[in-house]
């Protein structure tokens, strides 16, 4: 894949090794990946292939053992914990498989949560939360608690929470993994819609049907990129 200065995310030879007692596990080996602004990419592969490890590195939840990771051209290896937290809060929106909504907070408060860590005024927070809830079609459930919502609705709220900070990229970890097919498709439809509105999305999935929604799919196996495929009308790349 050609490298140019416009890449939002640039991974060059990224490796991740886990050490358990005396056992060395290579979760990722020499990953090269670029994600451009506005791109919708899927990372696919069987269980244990390193998808989630890659996502955690992309989301600055974990650090690579080797190689280079640049976000918006800035190398992230030397960032302090505090700077990583700030970037995570402002540049990255997470959508988790298990929704990870906080049970004690209502829908509004869950979506507002990332903004509270920015020191944003409450008026601004309210405006943004209302906008984003309307965008995902959950404004009418603002006062509800997660336990009062269906799985599909919870994931919509989780998407709203990921969007509210206006991040540079949405990272979705198996976003349909906890949903039935009908709700799963609805969430995928929502992601498609967001993509068409300009959002950059990186989604981890093991479901080839949903991977097909992305413009490009990176296939991982044993911690390596073994194939890249493009959706119809896109250019396919063989790793």
């Amino acid at each position: 894949m050609a490298t140019d200065g416009t890449a939002l995310i640039h991974l060059d030879g990224v490796t991740k090794v886990f050490y358990t007692d005396e056992i060395e596990t290579h979760a990722l080996s020499g990953i090269h990946l670029e994600i451009r602004p506005g791109e919708y990419i899927a990372i696919a592969g069987p269980s244990g292939c390193g998808k989630s490890t890659l996502l955690s590195i992309l989301g600055l939840l974990d650090s690579p053992s080797g190689g280079e990771y640049r976000l918006k051209t800035q190398p992230v290896a030397q960032l302090s914990l505090s700077e990583r937290t700030r970037i995570r809060n402002r540049e990255i929106g997470f959508i988790f498989q298990a929704f990870n909504l906080i049970g004690d907070l209502n829908v509004y408060e869950n979506v507002e949560l990332p903004l509270t860590y920015r020191g944003m005024s409450s008026a601004e927070r309210r405006k943004r939360v209302q906008e984003v809830l309307e965008r995902v079609g959950m404004a009418h459930r603002m006062k509800h608690y997660p336990s009062q919502l269906s799985g599909g609705q919870q994931q919509r709220v989780a998407v709203a929470r990921a969007l509210v900070g206006q991040p540079a990229i949405l990272l979705a970890d198996e976003p349909t993994g906890n949903l039935d097919s009908k709700n799963g498709e609805a969430v995928m439809e929502l992601l498609n819609q967001l993509h068409h509105e300009g959002a950059t999305i990186c989604m981890v999935t093991h479901d080839t049907r949903y991977a097909g929604c992305a413009e490009r799919t990176v296939h991982l196996f044993d911690g390596r990129v073994v194939e890249e495929t493009a959706a119809a009308g896109q250019q396919a790349v063989q790793a």
Binding site: T85, F96, L113, R161
Partner: peptide, 16 residues
């Protein structure tokens, strides 16, 4: 613990 992890993932500082 999981909730704390989620909060940290969403940008909460250790102080938060």
């Amino acid at each position: 613990t999981h909730e704390m992890g989620v909060r940290m993932a969403l940008g909460a500082e250790p102080g938060d």
